[in-house]
């Protein structure tokens, strides 16, 4: 368990609460998908959500930038505060919210446009840049942050769909950080990737921590242990346990967490 030990020693940055969720419930039609979830997500931290399939971890992630609004049958209650403002307040425009809380999806989903246009899409729709030169700069810096620049700088105009799976996912990350979000949500970002691409993306996540707070949903406990500072374990729509990653993995309080980590459920 050397990874876990390394983790234990990694210092946890001085925290401020970025997102505060209280009594969050989600219903899909008659299906009660999420029950009374309370979580505080800290800034400049990687928070991992783990749990068996269908436990509600992705559902909760999609609550954080109101992507559940696009599912007609979904009903969300409870409160989720971003920097103290309730994101479900009727005055909040989900469009503005999602610029601050970006999202990366399970399957790489580059638009059928050029690499450049994929990254420039967010800044363009939100009107973040004033000139072409400024936009070029944003695109380059985001691609650099996503560790993709060197691989694509000569073919920015070729279609994003032509990249390899790992490159596509890094392109999607570049696209997500181009709107300078404050929180980056990642929904199993490595599940469609091979081990080498996964390692690259994980490395990237660790670097992104310096600027954003990152929330990652993952199936892989090793991955949660490798990249996150805090971990939340979901089971059957409940948040079972939430705490520092090291503690969760070495000394879980709840027997269900222990069963999951040791491979007896899930």
């Amino acid at each position: 368990m050397s990874v876990i030990e390394m983790k234990l020693e990694r210092e946890v940055a001085a925290e401020t609460i970025k997102i505060q969720a209280r009594k969050v419930q989600v219903h899909y039609g008659t299906n009660h998908a999420l029950k009374d979830v309370d979580v505080d997500i800290l800034s400049k931290n990687v928070t991992a959500f783990i749990g068996p399939s269908g436990c509600g971890k992705s559902t909760f992630l999609r609550c954080l930038n109101r992507m559940n609004d696009t599912v007609a049958s979904a009903k969300v209650s409870g409160s989720i505060l971003l920097d103290g403002a309730d994101i479900y307040d009727p005055r909040v425009d989900p469009v503005q919210l999602r610029a601050k809380v970006g999202m990366v999806f399970q399957k790489p989903n580059p638009f059928p446009k050029s690499i450049y246009d994929n990254v420039a899409y967010g800044p363009k729709i939100h009107g973040l840049t004033r000139s072409k030169a400024e936009l070029d700069e944003v695109v380059e810096s985001c691609l650099r942050k996503a560790a993709l620049w060197n691989e694509v700088k000569d073919r920015l105009q070729s279609p994003g769909t032509g990249l390899s799976g790992g490159q596509q996912q890094r392109l999607c990350i570049a696209r997500a950080i181009a709107t300078s979000p404050e929180v980056l949500l990642m929904d199993e970002p490595c599940s469609a990737l091979d081990p080498i691409a996964t390692a690259q993306v994980e490395e990237l996540i660790d670097e992104l921590r310096s600027q954003f707070s990152v929330v990652i949903v993952t199936h892989s406990m090793q991955q949660a242990a490798r990249v996150s500072q805090r971990t939340a374990f979901f089971h059957l729509g409940h948040l079972v346990e939430y705490g520092e990653t090291g503690t969760i993995f070495t000394n879980p309080k709840d027997p269900r967490t222990e069963s999951y980590i040791t491979g007896r459920i899930g």
Binding site: M67, P94, M103, N109, F111, G122
Partner: peptide, 12 residues
């Protein structure tokens, strides 16, 4: 997934 990608970036 393309729609999600765009909506997730805050597009209307």
């Amino acid at each position: 997934s393309l729609r999600d990608g765009s909506l997730g970036l805050g597009a209307t």
